[in-house]
Every structure is written in C-alpha cells, then in structure tokens.
Design a protein around this nucleic acid. Structure first.
Length: 923
RNA sequence: GCGGGCGUGGCGGAAUUGGUAGACGCAAGGGACUUAAAAUCCCUCGGCCUAUGGCUGUGCGGGUUCGAGUCCCGCCGCCCGCACCA
C-alpha cells in the first residue's frame, strides 16, 4: 500500500530531516560489529542499523540541498544575462503564465523543459536569455474583484508573488532581473506607444461591427464566452450589437502570414497547418449577375464570390446573407422579410444552432439573368446560411454539387441540374437526390463547357466572363479570398491596457501624444454595478482634446489581453527601457530560438504575435517579421479521476490506493469508503484530479518532480501523472546519490592524469560513458527528453555493473563515468548534480561549467557483433573486426555453427552483407 | 462534412529512418537481507510449444524487398483541429 502525498505527509516522518554523516558513522560501526560471530552482538547491531535506516538518513536531503544551491546560484548571479556578451546568443522562452494564484503541473512540465534547454545551451557555450514574466491583465482579476471585493491590482500582484515563490523552488535558471507583468504601468505605457505608432502607420482602425453583447453584465463577450446563446456568467441571452470597435488590420497581412509559414521549418507541422487553415485562402471568381429590373437599393447587378465557376450552368437560385445591404434595403418595405432577418439573427451562429438549423430562405421576388445561359433567370432569396463576412455576402446556388444548396433547393422545390459527371457515370441516368456530388468528373449539361475537366472548365468560364463588360467593367474577376478577419481588440473592461485615444467632437479621434503617456488606469474604481468601471468613473474619462484643447472624452475601452502577449518576448530584451524596444538589442536576441508552450495557443497567440512583430517591423521597432524560430508544443499533464458513490469527484490527496494481484482500489481517507477509479483526464479543477506541485516538491524535491515530468512520455504527448512514476524518479535521485557516495572513496584525486592505456573491460565502461554522452547530447538537441532519461538510466546501470575498480585505470574511468553522468543530468536535475559535483571534489559551479567533450574514438568499437539472418530471420551473431571486408564477413558468417546446421550442406543462393549492420543469408 | 495525427507487452514508451522488435521506466511474480515492515540487491517477465531449441508476434488483409513496426494499396478503430467559408 502506498499513500498519496498529502496523506503520506501526515503519517510518516519526512525523510529529509536527518543528517547524512551520522548515519555513515553508524554504518561503519555496524559493519565492523557484524563480522563478530555472536548472535547477541549481531542482534544489537541489527537494531542499531535498523534505527539508522529508519531515520532514513542515508538519503539525499533534497529539501536542504535544493534551497542551498538556489541561494548559491542567486548570489553568484549565474543566470543573469548581459546584452553585451561575445558568445553566440540563444533565446529560450516558455509561454509566460497567467497569475491565477498557484502554479499547476502543466507549468512544471513547461518550465522544466525550457530549463533543460536553457541549461544545456549555457553549457554549450551560448549566451542564454531565459526570462520570466506575467500575463497579468484579464477577466479573472475582475471577477475576483466582484466576488471578493478586492482590487484587481492587489489580487493580481499577490498571485504573482505567490507563484514567483513557487517557481523559485523549482530551481529554474531564469534571469529574474528582467521580470515584469503586463499590468505594470511601465509595460503598458510602452504598449500604448506602440498603439499610437500603429495608428499612425494605418495598422489600426475603427469601425462599426457586430459583437456579442451581454445585456446584464453590460459588456462584450468573446465567442468562447457565449454558451448556448447566453452569457456564461449572467445566463442572459446574448444580443448582437453594432458597436464601434478598434481593429488591427491583420487580414491585410494574410497573404504574407500564410506564405511565411513555409519558412518556419522548426515549427510543428500541425501548428503550421492549423494556421494555414485558419487563414483560409481560396481562389475563385467574383461574378456580377444582372438584375432583370433594378433592385430596390438601386443596383443593377448582384456580385457573388465562387470557387466553383465550372458549375455555373447548374445554378438554380441566388442567395443573399440576411446582413447583406440589399436584404436590408428590401426589408425596409417588407415586414415579412424584416421578420425573417430578425429570426436569423436570433438563432445566431453558435455551433449548436448551425448543426441543427434548417436551411431557410425568403424569396425576394427579384430575378437575375444567367450570365451565360441565354434566357435563364434565377430567383434571388435571402438565406440563413449565407455569411456576410465571407466573399461578397451573396452566392449562386448549385444544388447538384453543394450539399447546403441541395438542402435548400429541395425545401423550396428549385431545379437540380447535375453538371459534373463522375468517371464511369452515365449522363442519361445520373441523378442527384439527397446527396450532392462534390467529386471529380467531366462537365455535362453546360453548353460550351461540356466534356471538360473541372479545372479546364473553371479556366474557360473565367476567361469568357472576364471578356464580357457590364457597366464598363468585366463581369467577372479572379479573386483570392481569406477567412482571416481583422482582429477586434476593444474590450469594455477595466483590467486591461487603456487604448490611448481621445474622442473630440471637433477633431474626431485623436491619439494621446506620446509625451502624455501612459494613460493610467485609475485606482479608485468600484465593481458594485455591472459594466465597465472606466466608463462610469466620475472624472477619468473627461479630458482636454490634445489637438484643440476643448473638452473631450477618453476612450474607455481597453485592449484585448492577447495584445499584451503579442510582444512581451521582445520587451524581455530591454525590459527597463523608456521606449518599447532598443532595436539593436531586439534584433540581437530575436527571433526566439526555442519557444515552448501548449498547443492551445496554436492559432490565436502565435498568429497574433506573428502579426504584431510585422507591425513592429513596419513601425521600426524591430528588424524582423517572424518572432519564433523554433516552436515546441508540449502535451498536457493528465491524471486518473476518482468519484465516490454519489458521483462526486474526489481529489487524489484525499484518498489512498490499495494494490495487489492486479487489482487496484481507491478509498477515501476520511470515511474509508471505496471510490471508483475513472478515466485518465487532463488535470482540471472541475474533475479535481490535480496534484499540487508544491506538495510534490515538499515531499520529493524539485529535481524529482522535474525529472519525472521529462521521463517516459515524449514531450509533445500527454503525460500521465502517477504516484508510482514520481517514486521511480525519486528512487533514481537517491540511487545516483548513493552511487556517487560509494564511488568517491575509490576514485583517484581530481587532476589525476589520464592513464596511457586501459584494459579491455575498463575500456568498455569508457565506451559506454562516451556513447551515452553522445546520445544524450543528440537527444537534448532534439528535445527528446524521454530518450535522454533512458540513456542516463543505462549509464547508471552500467556503472553499477562495473563494480568497484580494481586498478588505477579502472578508478580513473570510474571518475570519468560519474563526472559525465553528473554533467549530463545537470540540465534536468540541477541541484542533485551540483551536490554530486561538489562531492566529487570540484570547486566550480556546475551551472557555469562546459558540457563534456565526446571522445569520438570511443564511439567506435574495434570488434562488432553482427546479427546473421537466414532468409530474414536472425539465427546467429557474429563477432568480427569492425574493418573486416565484405568477403571476410561473409566467410565468417557461413562458418558459424548455427548457419552451417541450417544450410545443411547446401550452398547459399546469395549472401547480403550490409557493412557494420547485418548479414542475411538467402538459402 | 473538410483537414491532420496515431494504432508496438499488463502500462508509459524505445527501435540509428528499410537491417537483432520490445531499450529504459512502471506494474507484477520469485529470491536474498530482516523478528517484521520499509529500503536495497539479484532473478523472471509478448504469446505458444515437445524449452541450452523452435514457432509466432508491431490494429486487420494484401503487396514491394534478401530483409517491413518503418515503404505502397485497401479496410477497421481511436484521437485532435476546423466547420453553413460558397
């Protein structure tokens, strides 16, 4: 039986409380006494020894050692990074945390990985920048303010203090001197300067747009905060409102943001693909259809966008978005249409609504002429499935080859004419009923397009329509459309960066002059009413117009918090500067060489940052457009879930697990009642399957927690947090400690020169050492932490198997092996490594030491073992000189007893020798 | 619906990218030490068989190859992202 950490702490003595030397003395004594042949003495010594072991004092005292080394590093300022350093630079960054109150295991995993990279690169001779900060603006602080009557600022800074302490006990090699929070006035002041620059450069603009409006909380909600059409907090039905909002013109950069993805070759393919889909490029044609009679809004043509102009002959109707200007114009004099449009808006565009909503339309009575099919007219509908913000907000419907159009046509009894015939299809009998055909084929029923492929038909119809003039311009134009829309950054909230703009009746929108920045958030606010406290503050928004001096009002919206996180990595390069950046310094450090974070930011944060860096380049703040050269997305931390008989979630700390003969059962600690063990899920507060990092570090130490997070699971995949796994890591920590402790006695002094020769078995240990070093180096380069961990286990096993040295060269090789082990484990378990390093007699700090050198000669064996196959099945092994010729290998293989037996006197048909790999005998 | 990924022991996962499948860890079983427990150390651990050997085995079915977990074709299953995008 084992107990989960919380319970364990209550029931057992902490292993770290006892001093090592005391135990060592006892062990020496009992060792001597044990040799005496007397049952009484043996019994007594056993008692003494047990007591000593029970004191657990043999163990490495992580708690004491970790605090000590953290202090040492701190004092020596070994992680403080200078901007003027001759060594090559390396910028490693983990996505900065939101200060919610406590760190969670996801943070531990993220920062453990980043720290390994930082420490490894440092040892490899790079000048490493590894900073930390806080993504500190946002709604939770306001919610806390409302619920607990605490100022958002106070709540946030308290959380930051608590979380900083938690991070510090992890022993991360961070340059804390560069720390800042995005809610620091000094930071958002610079962000406001950037905003003003962007405004002048035309990168920001203001327009009316539809937003989700919560009428109870009186605020805009993000799409994610609208649940089943209601506000997530208030529960009130969300309204669609037209509000004037600030936008970044990210969509103008869509082509570049898309193309540049190809150059991000150190990004996960998956993330690049997600961004590609999000940007959503499609090539097509805008086509203008002539109305039979002029439309109510005075227009003579209706412009649509299509990617399938090849199906034009299959058109049977036109459809407008309910938000199309023409829809509104017709609705003015048409109450039925007004009602229909209202209904469409009510249903909204939530996921649930889209899945269940029927395709519906309203026939406006208008008709357009078919552009190429002489004499055909098409009815114009307003349809609920047409989006205003894509293409032109109007489409032509081709029911045979588009499922939505088919559903619509079936409902309103519109004609369905197939114009693409599948290969091997029969034109006479090909009918479309309930399922549209969207595949490849030959064009039919399409006059001059008949018989063409889809691609040829697209080109032909485009050329034809481009040559037709309507009202002085071509009827059709080729166009590239993007799904990416401009980034609306206005938030009707207090806890965000104020948008530095003043509204003046005479002068319009005037940016706050840079010398008057920052526009600071007022402190005297209250949350007793819903809505934006900035808006109802008695004095804050009233000011003089910077242009004319007359009375004016401040913008009371604040910026989306994604703006804050779109350039923090740049600010780290010069965190105290009185300008947003020092361009030279920023250009020195950027792009970030290795960025590490969760996949959940694959689109928003990473796309916004890419845009923002471009904007900063345009306004002269940085010299590049891509901020992150290498990106790594780590997996989540998961844990078993537990529920009691009532279905209540139970947290792991409140129960104990019993295990035996393959049966695992969980019981509540308080009542003893059995609890059912459920599926493995992402650690979350709602399922209570979280484990507190501080508990783990208290019990096992930071090195154990870090090491476990990096073991077993590949870093990009989810890792399952298990108590057994942590204990495995803890055992390894202790094992290394014992190994070093035992070995020190049989080691030569520090600067003993390397022996001239080594005996064969000593050489074997040296080979293992250098092979491990080589492999771990490669694994760390590729962030394959789990593989590196396995290699370290192997080396420890090998050193253990080698046993105590019996010769000088053996002793020397032992020191080499152990020093190497300590050095390669240092990035993962820095405290233990320093402790061992010191124990080995080293005076330097391992944190500032160089990575050991691989002796390439030792990677090559003189004698190798080749597997020998017969017909692809391994039958024997052949030990042979590495540089043996193919002929020699073949001859030796055929002489092997096992091979001779199998061949049974017959000559092999063929022998394949792959040098230094394998031998395959074809019988 | 569209796009992408993944299927290897009881479990997490290795496998030099076509060359000894199961490294390393976890769990389990056995043993040593101990009055006992804990800790530690040693052994076993894909399956089957007539067991110092042999057969079989990487989701299923085929193919290419001297040789396939890896490549190709066709299925099955799971996971993720996007989604009324014309």
């Amino acid at each position: 039986m084992w107990l989960l950490p919380h319970a364990q702490k209550q029931l057992t003595i902490q292993p770290f409380h006892f001093e090592f030397p005391r135990y060592k003395a006892i062990r020496r004594l009992t060792g001597a006494l044990n040799s005496v042949d007397s049952p009484t003495i043996r019994f007594t010594t056993n008692k003494i020894r047990q007591t000593a072991i029970n004191m657990a004092s043999e163990r490495y005292n992580a708690r004491e050692a970790e605090a000590r080394w953290q202090k040492t590093w701190d004092k020596a300022e070994v992680f403080k990074t200078s901007n003027s350093d001759q060594r090559p630079k390396y910028y490693v960054l983990e996505m900065f945390p939101y200060p919610s109150g406590r760190i969670h295991m996801g943070h531990v995993r993220n920062y453990a990985m980043g720290d390994v990279v930082a420490r490894y690169r440092r040892a490899r001779g790079f000048n490493v920048l590894h900073p930390m900060g806080w993504d500190a603006f946002g709604m939770p602080a306001e919610n806390a303010a409302i619920q607990n009557n605490v100022h958002p600022s106070e709540w946030t800074y308290q959380n930051i203090a608590a979380m900083r302490d938690q991070l510090k006990i992890m022993g991360l090699s961070l340059d804390w001197s560069r720390e800042f929070a995005t809610c620091d006035v000094a930071y958002y002041k610079q962000q406001q300067k950037l905003f003003v620059d962007f405004l002048e450069a035309g990168l920001v603009y203001r327009k009316k747009s539809k937003v989700n409006w919560d009428p109870v909380d009186m605020t805009v909600l993000a799409n994610e905060q609208v649940i089943d059409g209601c506000g997530w907090r208030s529960g009130a039905p969300v309204e669609q409102r037209e509000l004037t909002q600030w936008f970044f013109n990210i969509s103008e950069h869509a082509p570049d943001l898309l193309e540049a993805l190809d150059g991000l070759d150190r990004w996960p393919e998956k993330v690049r693909l997600m961004q590609k889909n999000w940007i959503g490029r499609s090539e097509g044609l805008t086509v203008r259809f002539e109305f039979e009679t002029t439309a109510p809004d005075g227009s003579d043509t209706l412009e649509i966008f299509t990617t399938r102009p090849d199906t034009l002959f299959g058109a049977s109707f036109m459809a407008l978005s309910p938000d199309h200007p023409l829809s509104a114009a017709i609705a003015k004099t048409n109450p039925d249409l007004t009602a229909f449009i209202e209904e469409c808006r009510r249903i909204g565009t939530s996921v649930a609504a889209i899945e269940t909503a029927e395709k519906k339309g309203y026939d406006t009575g208008l008709k357009v002429k078919h552009p190429v099919n002489e004499g055909q007219t098409l009815p114009v509908y307003v349809a609920n499935f047409v989006l205003m913000d894509y293409g032109t907000g109007a489409i032509f419907g081709c029911p045979a080859h588009d499922q939505r159009d088919l559903d619509f046509a079936n409902k309103y009894a519109l004609p369905v004419t197939p114009v693409v015939l599948p290969e091997n299809g029969d034109a006479a009998s090909f009918k479309i009923d309930q399922e549209a055909y969207t595949g490849e084929g030959r064009i039919i029923n399409s006059d001059f397009l008949d018989g063409m492929s889809i691609a040829d038909a697209k080109e032909t119809i485009a050329v034809r329509l481009e040559s037709v003039q309507i009202g002085g311009s071509p009827q059709a134009e080729r166009q590239i459309n993007y799904k990416l829309r401009d980034w609306g950054i206005s938030r009707q909230r207090y806890w965000g960066c104020p948008i530095p703009v003043i509204h003046c009746e005479a002068c319009g929108t005037v940016p706050v002059p840079k010398q008057e920045l920052p526009v600071e958030l007022p402190n005297d606010i209250n949350f007793d009413k819903p809505g934006n406290p900035l808006d109802r503050h008695p004095t804050w928004k009233h000011c003089a117009c910077p242009a004319c001096g007359k009375e004016a009002t401040r913008e009371t919206d604040t910026m989306d918090t994604f703006v804050d996180s779109s350039w923090y990595f740049t600010r780290f390069t010069a965190p105290d500067l009185e300008d947003p950046t020092d361009k030279n310094v920023a250009d020195h450090w950027l792009p970030v060489d290795q960025y590490i974070g969760g996949i959940e930011h694959a689109i928003l944060h990473l796309l916004y940052s890419r845009f923002f860096t471009r904007a900063m380049q345009i306004t002269g703040h940085v010299g590049m457009k891509e901020p992150f050269k290498g990106l790594f997305t780590q997996g989540m931390v998961t844990h078993e879930t537990y529920r009691d008989a009532d279905g209540q979630w139970i947290t792991p700390a409140d129960l104990r697990i019993e295990e035996g003969s393959g049966i695992r059962q969980a019981f509540r600690l308080d009542t003893g009642a059995e609890v059912s063990i459920g599926s493995i899920e992402k650690m979350s507060k709602s399922k209570k399957n979280t484990v507190d990092p501080t508990d783990i570090i208290d019990t096992y130490g930071a090195d154990t927690a870090r090491f476990f997070m990096l073991s077993d699971s590949p870093p990009e995949r989810d890792v399952i947090w298990t108590e057994e796994g942590v204990q495995g890591a803890f055992r390894f920590v202790q094992r290394v400690w014992r190994l070093v402790d035992d070995a020190v006695e049989s080691m030569p002094p520090l600067d003993t020169p390397q022996p001239e020769t080594f005996s064969e078995n000593v050489l074997a240990l040296r080979r293992t050492t250098h092979k491990t070093l080589d492999a771990v180096s490669n694994d760390l380069e590729k962030l394959a932490f789990n593989r590196a961990v396995a290699r370290m286990y192997e080396l420890v096993n090998s050193i253990g198997k080698a046993g105590k040295p019996t010769s000088d060269d053996g002793a020397w090789a032992l020191r080499e092996a152990i020093e190497t082990l300590v050095q390669i484990m240092a990035p993962m378990m820095p405290h233990l490594a320093e402790e061992c390093w010191q124990k080995l007699g080293q005076n330097s700090l391992l944190a500032t030491s160089d990575w050991p050198q691989v002796e390439k000669d030792l990677l090559i064996e003189n004698t190798i073992i080749l597997p020998v196959q017969v017909n692809g099945k391994k039958r024997a092994e052949l030990s042979i000189a590495r540089d043996a010729t193919k002929e020699q290998v073949e001859a030796a293989a055929l002489e092997l007893e096992a091979i001779v037996r199998i061949l049974d006197g017959n000559a092999p048909r063929k022998v394949i020798v792959v040098p230094q790999r394998i031998v395959n005998v074809v019988a």
